[in-house]
Design a protein around this nucleic acid. Structure first.
Lengths: 342, 342
DNA sequence: CTGAAAGCGCTTACAG
DNA sequence: CTGAAAGCGCTTACAG
């Protein structure tokens, strides 16, 4: 901890009370402008920085929020974080970021850490583990502290918190529809996140689109896996067995991996097989051919999440809100031109 | 801020003093095990979480460190952050992360925010702006607070802080050497970070390798740019004008972009042009052909940085340390097999 | 083994 | 316009 000049130090030097210093610093109308001037100057030359802890101990508010996020390696989360930070700093809020690494235990530990750092509120996107187990007992305990919480992306509807998500169902539905409208007949869904709320919605959107196809419904092929270890083998087997001609991937990595695998196996993309992936990340943009994606507007998700939390802070009894950010289908070169108009 | 049970609440319930509660909680040998037992149980049922702020106000130490990093979108920084967080949590430290977005002003603002959050120490990787200007006056002011600081990756040697970097010069030297040993004669260096300490070392490593080639020295082509906007145009012009046959890129994006541009222009990689990039990120791994890279072991850089800071915390007067983490040349398919042994 | 008291750095109602 | 005093939630030397 740094050696800091305190209000008391300044009071001694200027021969006034600490109350006066405190008030002058917060620009209270009770203080004469002469005094304010002197105090400010002193503060500047001494490099005074208010002690955030002492202040919040009194004021019961810290202008600090906490974030619990699965990781920062995924482009989506990295961008969300950027969005949160940018928006928060506009309002003078500091952001404490923690990573759950998709583990329920460290997620809970992080939550507690944030609470004992007296954050004013918390933004959370749940770990794979808690979403898989579906056991939100930890969150009930956390609720006992009465701290405002906003869920984003990976959420749980059973919890009475505000939420910010993208329209995963609709995004997936739209992408699937685009695939068959451009001629695909045997479309597979790839997902390493089948146990998350997000993964489930995307799967439903995919299945739903296949069922609702006007004339005849199309067969579905769900390829779900826990890790990328055996991805290539798994994917190429299904590919050959069912002569797939369209791929919808629930995340960036599986989109890229499927694209690479297809090419290595000698398939031409998009002439023989079309590919659409979720997340408009750097890999999608630099792939060859460039990848058509469902863009999630991650920064906007972050910014919006902060706004919702901020509103919750000032109005704790408002009805809970569930914000949905529209995703966008960005067509690039891994999909064919359309055969039918939507 | 959450409504929390305090030590005082528990003292009332159990009819003992706050001192006893405090001591019981910190497992002081002075307290009977019976009392400890009762207190712990009570703490558990009441969901007691110690107020970190109050504690640090007394103890003058917070077990919290701050990080100032340019961004979290670059794979390198994301991984460093993971490394820091992982290592810090081993020792019960909390990590406050802030982003400078490569701006000198917000970098300074972040530093001050961290200090008034009473972090025990700070880890920093400088913004492009401060490195370009070379004006570290802000850091001198920060030094006035006497807070331990460790620089990582983008550092400034004139400052009396510990540092952790990778061997940028050697990594670049080795990569360049590999390029000409595998037959490249006209090797260019691509850099969007020419103004950073890291960028400068990599450039020197490249130039140095070209000069020291045994028989005859090779021509150098430095392509430096501030943004990727006109990358393609700039790059393809130099490429054609000088018939380049080898590329060393100082970051992941320019490596990928150059690879893509080469292919779009009809060059075969690596038969006609070889490419090596810095950063072993997801793009490099998923590129087609897979990209040979200088891997920076980013997580290790993060973990090591935390360790150095932690040591500094306990021994403030030790000689400053400059740790260098060895980089590694990972050969994949964007470079040819060797002609000459190194 | 336990308690009363002081103090960390601030803010703010109360008094003048 | 300014000051003395109490208190936020904790820790710890001092006393018993």
């Amino acid at each position: 901890m740094a050696t800091m000049t305190t209000i008391k130090d300044m009071a001694e030097v200027l021969q006034v009370s600490t109350s006066t210093i405190s008030r002058a610093l917060s620009d209270s109308p009770e203080i004469s402008s002469k005094t304010k001037e002197r105090v400010r100057e002193m503060a500047k030359t001494l490099g005074y920085v208010p002690n955030h802890y002492a202040r919040s101990l009194k004021s019961k508010t810290t202008k600090t929020i906490g974030v619990v996020v699965p990781n920062v390696i995924d482009d989506f989360f990295a961008k969300v974080l950027h969005g949160i930070e940018k928006e928060a700093s506009k309002y003078g809020f500091t952001v404490l970021i923690t990573f759950s690494n998709d583990s329920k235990k460290s997620e809970y530990k992080n939550l507690l850490t944030l609470i004992n750092h007296s954050v004013d509120g918390i933004l959370i996107s749940f770990s794979k583990e808690i979403q898989k187990l579906g056991d939100y007992g930890n969150m009930l305990k956390i609720m006992g502290y009465g701290i405002p919480i906003v869920m984003f992306d990976r959420i749980h509807k059973g919890l009475p918190f505000d939420s910010v998500t993208i329209d995963d169902f609709a995004g997936s539905y739209r992408a699937t529809k685009h695939l068959y409208n451009s001629g695909c007949q045997r479309i597979a869904f790839l997902s390493p996140i089948s146990n998350t709320s997000v993964g489930r919605s995307r799967k439903e959107g995919y299945l739903s689109a296949l069922k609702r196809k006007e004339n005849n419904s199309l067969p579905s092929f769900c390829i779900e896996f826990g890790s990328y270890k055996k991805f290539k083998e798994l994917f190429s087997n299904v590919l050959k067995a069912h002569r797939l001609d369209g791929i919808l991937a629930a995340d960036e990595l599986s989109a890229i991996y499927s694209l690479n695998t297809l090419q290595q196996m000698g398939y031409e993309v998009p002439r023989e097989v079309s590919v659409i992936g979720f997340t408009n990340g750097p890999m999608a943009q630099s792939a060859n051919p460039t990848l058509s994606v469902v863009s999630q507007h991650a920064e906007r998700v972050g910014a919006k999440s902060f706004q919702v939390l901020k509103n919750r802070l000032t109005n704790s009894r408002a009805k809970t809100k569930n914000i949905v950010i529209a995703s966008e289908l960005l067509l690039r070169n891994s999909t064919r031109a359309m055969y039918l108009e939507e």
